[in-house]
């Protein structure tokens, strides 16, 4: 029996702006098992980042989690107060972001920032924290870590900064790491370095990971299970092999078909018609229906629900609703 580390249940995060309520995340449920890497894929505005921020209660006003549970080892993180959640952030669940330069404080050395992070959560003295920080810097492949400990963030390249972020995120041996587009801002050769580094560290530290990305290549390379989001909702969930071999949702199919392939020479790239909907103006019924090649009348009016189709897979589409399936 696999142990569930994180379970997000029926999460709704809305933004209450002057223009009205923007439902960025609308009833999202998924789970992360111990030692598992889960990928959340989707395009801009699909709610993948807001979902990850909601897990750690990092939603600022006018945003608010209006409903749902985020069970971490059985404990609901949403019910925790600010002090309690701070003990979890950066300690048992850490996060790395897309742009490492803005996530690091420019006026402190990288070493300083890592050992600070360690000292917040662990009872160690300054020297121990420093030793640990240097060890982490070495682990993430930063050359000459004793010297780089005293570097300021702006003196490092983008790849090195992301390594520092990873070192900081993993310094307290978190049980869960949330990586929000960790390689999007990096060049492809550096991305390959960081991905392989992450893979090795995960194996070593047994950390569970949620990777948020728009890049299906990164998903195929890294994750065990995939959650596909569209318009603030999960439209499909499956194991990575299952998803790429047998994509069920028309959106997933379209996404796979419209991804340019590096390992094929002559092929026709298909695209999904229409535009990515913006969260403040979602279509009625199934959110994907205006772009869906299989759209039926029913799709325009009624929103299908996410149904399990066995094999740890689930799908939210009228094409699959008539099967004998169980609701998630």
């Amino acid at each position: 029996m696999v142990e569930k580390l994180l379970e997000v249940k029926n999460l709704y995060t809305h933004f209450f702006t002057e223009q009205g309520v923007i439902p960025s995340v609308n009833g999202v449920s998924f789970s992360v098992n111990k030692g598992e890497i889960v990928g959340i894929v989707g395009e801009s505005g699909c709610g993948k980042s807001v979902t990850s921020l909601s897990i750690l209660q990092l939603i600022d006003k006018p945003g608010k989690i209006v409903n749902g549970e985020v069970l971490f080892n059985g404990e609901d993180l949403i019910k925790l107060n600010e002090k309690q959640i701070k003990k979890i952030r950066g300690n048992r669940i850490s996060m790395i972001f897309q742009e490492p330069l803005t996530s690091l404080n420019p006026v402190f050395t990288v070493g300083n920032q890592i050992s600070e992070a360690i000292r917040i959560h662990q009872k160690v003295n300054k020297q121990q924290a420093k030793d640990k920080a240097i060890e982490m810097l070495r682990k993430v492949g930063i050359p000459n870590p004793e010297k780089q400990y005293y570097s300021f963030p702006h003196l490092l390249s983008g790849g090195m900064r992301q390594r520092v972020m990873i070192a900081m995120a993993l310094s307290c041996n978190p049980e869960l790491l949330i990586a929000d587009e960790p390689t999007t801002a990096l060049d492809v050769t550096i991305q390959a370095q960081i991905l392989s580094l992450m893979k090795n560290l995960i194996e070593e530290l047994q950390t569970s990971i949620i990777i948020i990305t728009h890049d299906l290549g990164v998903v195929a390379e890294m994750v065990d299970r995939v959650v596909v989001m569209y318009g603030g909702e999960i439209v499909e969930q499956a194991s990575v092999y299952d998803l790429f071999e047998n994509p069920r949702h028309p959106y997933t199919q379209g996404l796979l078909k419209s991804t340019p392939k590096v390992h094929e020479l002559e092929y026709e790239l298909e695209s999904i018609d229409g535009n990515v909907p913006s969260p403040d103006n979602m279509p009625t019924g199934c959110k994907f229906h205006p772009r869906c090649p299989f759209a039926m009348d029913k799709c325009k009016e009624e929103d299908p629900s996410l149904l399990s189709v066995g094999n740890d897979s689930a799908i939210k589409c009228w094409l699959y609703q008539d099967r004998k399936v169980v609701q998630v």
């Binding site: 018609d273 535009n275 103006n281 279509p283 205006p290 772009r291």
Partner: peptide, 10 residues
């Protein structure tokens, strides 16, 4: 057509 429709909608 598809694009403009959804655009008008949006």
């Amino acid at each position: 057509n598809a694009e403009s429709k959804s655009e008008l909608n949006i």
